[in-house]
Computed example of a mutant assay.
Amino acid sequence: MNPVICIDGVVGCGKTTLAEILEQELNIPTFHELCNPDTEILLDKFYRDKTRWAFTMQIHFLNERFRMIKAVHKNGGGILDRSIFGDRIFASMLYEDGFMSKEEYTTYVTLLDNMLEHSLPPRLMIYLKCSVDQAIKNIQTRGREYELIVPRKYWERLNEKYTQWRHEYALSPLIEIDVDAVDILQEKDKIVEIIEKHLASSLSSL
């Protein structure tokens, strides 16, 4: 049986890149966040009109992440390149910034809490620490049009939220990789070795 590994971090930090490396090196299947074609359609609408699409987008993502965490456990393990455990980050920021009403946010939080009661935590959470400058550079390189129109202030706020979430996360063992200091592709062997050691350690403690 494979472990459940979650990779999280701000948009553009390299989650999918790391997931693909781990899938190849550890022979563990990846469950990708953007596997549903409706997701990118909604993301484009959301980034162009957050007030109209914020609540719809968050409910869509919440539903997708709940489906994915169930699928990965049904599969007997796998890698998630974002998960339900960090989903509140986006919604809380959108509510604070006025893009979701109090009633919408309350509905979202209630639904999330209900889903979390039925969501087993991963064996390992991998957090990719990333500066706003590096994230924007990566976003520009991959060239998704709907992300390129987003102002820097949004990415700064999101990074602040992720930093806070990382320090509060306590559902499972967590390791942090600073992608400003470590090139994931060039140092993949070292990274894989570190992750394997943490997985072995977490397994022995079960």
Rank of each mutant, 00 (worst) to 15 (best):
K197L: 13
R166A: 15
I79W: 00
L111P: 07
G14Q: 05
T110F: 10
V10P: 01
R123Y: 08
Y127Q: 04
H73T: 09
R142P: 01
L199H: 06
L43E: 06
K102D: 11
T163L: 15
L80D: 03
K137N: 13
R65G: 05
V109T: 14
L171D: 14
V72L: 04
F99C: 01
L42V: 07
Y169W: 02
A135S: 14
I59L: 15
F61M: 09
V109L: 13
R48I: 06
E160L: 11
K188M: 08
S201G: 10
I139V: 11
D87W: 00
S92A: 13
E103Y: 08
P37W: 08
A135R: 05
S101L: 02
L26S: 09
L120K: 15
E64H: 10
P29L: 11
N63C: 12
N2P: 08
A181H: 09
A91H: 01
I21E: 01
R82E: 08
H167M: 14
A181E: 15
D97V: 00
Q58P: 00
M100K: 03
K137F: 09
K102R: 14
F90E: 00
I7N: 04
K102W: 08
V10F: 00
I136G: 03
H60R: 07
Y95V: 00
Y154M: 07
P173T: 05
L80W: 00
F66L: 09
Y108G: 01
I79K: 02
W155H: 15
M68P: 05
Q164H: 12
S172D: 09
G77A: 05
Q164G: 06
I175Y: 04
K70P: 02
H73G: 00
F31D: 01
L112K: 05
A19E: 04
P29T: 05
R157Y: 10
S172W: 03
F31I: 11
N114S: 15
G9A: 07
